[in-house]
């Protein structure tokens, strides 16, 4: 079981990404080089798909989304930095590709699969890092995700959207922070700041399908990951340590009613517009 406090303790003398690989070896018996090799394959798919899908129109399964990435790509940003803009377009692109049965890496889940490609694609385009540098940041993202998976849950059905997109964003903010500062403590602060900002977010997909609001949440949450990382890099600390934030998130998740955990019955799924959309969909769905 991964506990952030332990990871932090061990990373005093060993680089954080190496600590994560070592801990995984102790737990599963798998050689760190082998894990690294498999992770690098996944990162390659993430980068390839981000490149191919960037700003494309998609024909999604229900048609409720599909042209959002395209719209944003053809728009000149007023407020977002170049980095945030690229990350947002990428996150929307992958989320819409996912909704149209495209190839994705379920990092950490299919529904939240846009956030990590968002930050990594922007990293490639803006900072031109080496693959090894990106891989190290990706391993750190994995370590954060595993802390949440071990201590709480990464499933929307179990813990609400805070557990899915929240985990994705916490992983992304940790990866960004590690890439810039190589500082484990700052990484933990970035992840904690992110998770605290989206504590309580419910899972309320219209009709139960992974499109509304999932696609645009990927686009928005990648920005929370970026701003949390920026704050942590400036030295801002999370008053509540990451481990305790995760525990709190778990408790909030289990106190959410069933209707707000991926059943498509509560939240925006229960609005008049959502209901009429779904009843129109049913005609050609069944």
């Amino acid at each position: 079981m991964f506990i952030w406090k332990d990871i932090l303790e061990m990373s005093r003398n060993i680089p954080l990404h190496q600590v994560i690989l070592n801990m995984e070896m102790f737990e599963t018996g798998v050689d760190p080089d082998e894990i690294k090799e498999k992770l690098s394959k996944m990162l390659k798919v993430i980068l390839e798909e981000a490149e191919t899908q960037y700003g494309k129109k998609h024909e999604t399964l229900t048609g409720m989304t599909g042209d959002n990435a395209f719209k944003l790509r053809n728009h000149t940003p007023n407020f977002l930095s170049k980095f945030s803009y690229m990350a947002t377009v990428t996150a929307l692109s992958i989320a819409e590709s996912n909704a149209s049965m495209g190839r994705i890496v379920a990092c950490p889940t299919a529904g939240a699969s846009g956030v990590i490609p968002g930050v990594f694609n922007a990293m490639v385009k803006i900072f031109n890092p080496t693959f090894e540098e990106m891989l190290e940041a990706f391993i750190v993202a994995g370590g954060i995700g595993k802390v949440i998976a071990d201590k709480a849950t990464i499933s929307g059905a179990a813990g609400g959207c805070q557990a899915e997109i929240g985990t994705a964003a916490a992983m992304a903010s940790g990866a960004l922070t590690y890439y810039i500062a190589k500082d484990a403590e700052k990484v933990g602060n970035a992840a904690a700041l992110t998770l605290k900002s989206i504590m309580g977010l419910v899972c309320d997909p219209v009709g139960g399908f992974v499109e509304v609001p999932c696609v645009k949440r990927n686009g928005n949450l990648v920005n929370i990951a970026i701003s949390s990382s920026e704050m942590a890099l400036s030295g801002i600390k999370s008053v509540i340590p990451f481990d305790e934030v995760v525990d709190a998130m778990k408790k909030v998740g289990s106190s959410l009613p069933q209707s707000l955990r991926e059943t498509g019955e509560g939240g925006i799924a229960n609005t008049q517009t959502a209901k009429s959309l779904v009843s129109n969909l049913k005609i050609f769905l069944l």
Partner: peptide
């Protein structure tokens, strides 16, 4: 946690 690679 990080994967797998799949179609949506």
């Amino acid at each position: 946690v990080v994967g797998p690679v799949m179609v949506g």
